[in-house]
Structure formats: C-alpha cells, structure tokens
Amino acid sequence: MTPSDYEYLRRLLKERSGLDLSADKQYLVESRLVPLARKSGLPGIPELVQKMKSGADALTAEVVEAMTTNETFFFRDKIPFDHMKETVIPALVQARAARRSLRIWCAASSTGQEPYSIAMCLKEFGSALAGWRTEIVATDLSQAVLEKSKAGIFSQFEVQRGLPIQMLVKYFTQTGELWQLNAEIRAMVQHRRLNLLQDFSHLGTFDVIFCRNVLIYFDQDTKANIFDRLSRMLEPDGVLALGAAESVVGITNAFKPYPERRGLYRPNTAPAARAGVTIMAPPALRAVASAR
C-alpha cells in the first residue's frame, strides 16, 4: 500500500464514518482490507483503491463497513450494566410511573450483544415493568452487523464472553453449536441503520443513551458535535453511558458526570452551559449535510 493510497483511505473513512486514523495505522487497514480485496477478486489494496476511485460505490460501502466493525460482547465492562440495574432503571421506574414507558437508544450497536444485554436487564425487573412500553432502538452504520443482530444467533464463543450462565439458560435456545435468543427478547429491540455523522434527531427523545466505544475513534471536533446533539435527544433526567476509555471532560459542557457512577453522564441543563453556545459541525459533517 502506497502512502497516497493510505491517505486516500484515511480521508474517505474520516468523511464517511468519522473514523480518525493516525499515520501509523497502516497495519490495521491492511489486516481488514487485504481479505476484502481478495474476496472481491483484486490482488491487493492499491487495486482496491483504484476501483473505489473509479466509482464503485458498493465496494466503497464494504470498505467503510470493514473498517468500522468493532469488537463487542455481552455485558461489556459490567459496571454500566450494574449501574443500570441498581440505580438508573429503579430511578426511571419511579420518575416515569405516570407514563409507564421507557426509551433506550443503543448507538453503534454492532452485532447486538449490547442492546440485548440491556433488554435482558429490563426483563429481569419482572413485575416492576409489567404493562410498560419499553423500546430499545439499536443503530449501526453497518447493515451487515444489523442483520446478524436481528437474527439473535450467537456462537459458543460469543455467549461465553460476558454472558452469565443463568441468563444463557433463561433466555437462549441451543441449536447445534449455536445459541439463539428467545423471540421475546429479540422483539424488545428495533434495528435501524444510522450514521452518527448525520442528523439523528428523527429518532426522538430517550431516557437512556448507550454510546460506548465508538467516539474514541473520532477527532475532538466531531466528538463535541455529537455530544451536543446527543444532549438534545435525552430527557432532562436522562442518562448517557460511555465506554470505559471515554469521557466528556475537556470536550463538551453539554453533559456532567453522574455522581458516583463511573461512565454515566447527565445532560447539563445549567443555563451557563447551554445558553449562547453554538458548536459548528466539523467539515465532514457540513459536507454530509450539504450533500443531502
């Protein structure tokens, strides 16, 4: 792969997905795109880039998907899900007693382990949520991972990563070497394709937003813009959950840490934090907006 090929891929991925690759990530590009090139009948990345430049839109979409499909597993990092069970959901059950509904958005949901972990958490509340309308919206840039998530079928390896054995027995059915989530849990999750760089206000407002282990790949301006837009999607007493290596500190005033709950944040409704603050979309976002 030539330096110019790598620069072309860096620019394309930044514009299409927000992925901000540093100059030393050629090895990552090669590990993910060489197999894709061969599957497409091409000798290597230079030929892949050449075909993309000639207007092969379907191939370009495959390249973006290959580079943005990230690792996931059930109840990843455990702590945010403990917070959900012990603090967040009980507080929302009280606060939403009149309307008896909860909306949760799982952004960058990948192959489904995270939204289904949330669904199982809610199911464990049993009678406390009986008769409630609970809605989990799972979104991802990749249609391929959304299709896998919809099926709710996981390998032995996948169910062994983070999933408590009692939940495996309770909510899954074994078919040969695979495990399928019960229809009742699958039905709790709606799947939609979505690029976080584009407008997502049409999704409506949520009580909880999981946006974990995705913003670490974006530059500071893009992170600030997404945080600002996420804050408008949350109820005033809603909760944002970020990944273990992510934080709003030094990036945005739209959120403040949830007291004594690591990885959780609340919308910052203080007038000084919101009034008069305009965060311009970074160039990639403005380009997307102008092209729509």
Rank of each mutant, 00 (worst) to 15 (best):
241 A>P: 01
200 F>N: 02
246 E>C: 04
71 E>S: 09
212 R>C: 11
197 L>A: 01
182 N>C: 11
247 S>T: 14
248 V>R: 01
50 Q>D: 13
39 K>I: 06
96 R>C: 14
198 Q>K: 05
160 Q>M: 11
25 K>E: 04
37 A>H: 03
243 G>Q: 05
257 P>C: 02
258 Y>W: 14
221 D>S: 12
170 K>T: 09
83 H>T: 15
175 T>D: 10
227 F>K: 00
82 D>A: 10
65 E>G: 13
3 P>H: 03
105 W>Q: 04
285 L>M: 15
187 A>T: 09
197 L>I: 02
34 V>G: 01
154 F>M: 02
72 T>R: 13
217 Y>S: 08
280 M>G: 14
255 F>G: 01
12 L>S: 09
257 P>K: 03
196 L>S: 00
253 N>H: 14
159 V>C: 05
29 V>R: 01
130 A>P: 07
47 E>G: 02
117 S>Q: 10
124 E>R: 05
247 S>V: 00
61 A>G: 08
74 F>R: 05
142 S>V: 02
39 K>S: 10
215 L>D: 03
154 F>A: 00
130 A>I: 05
109 S>R: 06
193 R>C: 08
155 S>D: 00
217 Y>C: 08
142 S>C: 05
95 A>I: 09
58 A>G: 12
11 R>S: 07
25 K>F: 08
25 K>G: 02
135 E>I: 06
228 D>R: 13
236 P>E: 09
142 S>K: 00
97 A>M: 13
173 T>N: 11
86 E>C: 10
160 Q>S: 15
178 L>V: 09
180 Q>G: 06
200 F>S: 03
52 M>N: 07
72 T>C: 11
290 S>V: 14
267 P>K: 08
281 A>T: 08
70 N>A: 10
238 G>K: 01
180 Q>E: 10
18 G>H: 06
135 E>S: 12
150 K>D: 09
118 I>L: 14
42 L>M: 03
123 K>L: 12
62 E>P: 07
177 E>N: 08
176 G>H: 02
263 G>Q: 14
206 F>S: 01
227 F>Y: 14
232 R>K: 11
115 P>T: 04
290 S>K: 14
90 P>V: 08
70 N>W: 15
132 W>V: 09
270 A>T: 14
192 R>S: 11
232 R>I: 03
118 I>P: 03
50 Q>N: 12
255 F>H: 06
18 G>D: 03
290 S>A: 15
140 D>S: 04
67 M>P: 04
76 R>M: 07
262 R>D: 15
181 L>T: 04
272 A>M: 14
275 A>I: 15
287 A>N: 06
275 A>N: 15
226 I>F: 06
170 K>W: 06
24 D>T: 10
74 F>K: 06
43 P>F: 09
160 Q>Y: 05
53 K>D: 13
236 P>V: 06
288 V>K: 03
169 V>R: 13
20 D>K: 00
265 Y>I: 13
31 S>C: 04
131 G>L: 08
7 E>Y: 11
116 Y>M: 05
173 T>F: 09
288 V>E: 04
83 H>C: 15
201 S>R: 12
172 F>D: 01
179 W>G: 04
221 D>F: 02
287 A>H: 05
245 A>G: 07
249 V>E: 14
88 V>I: 15
142 S>R: 00
130 A>Y: 10
148 K>I: 12
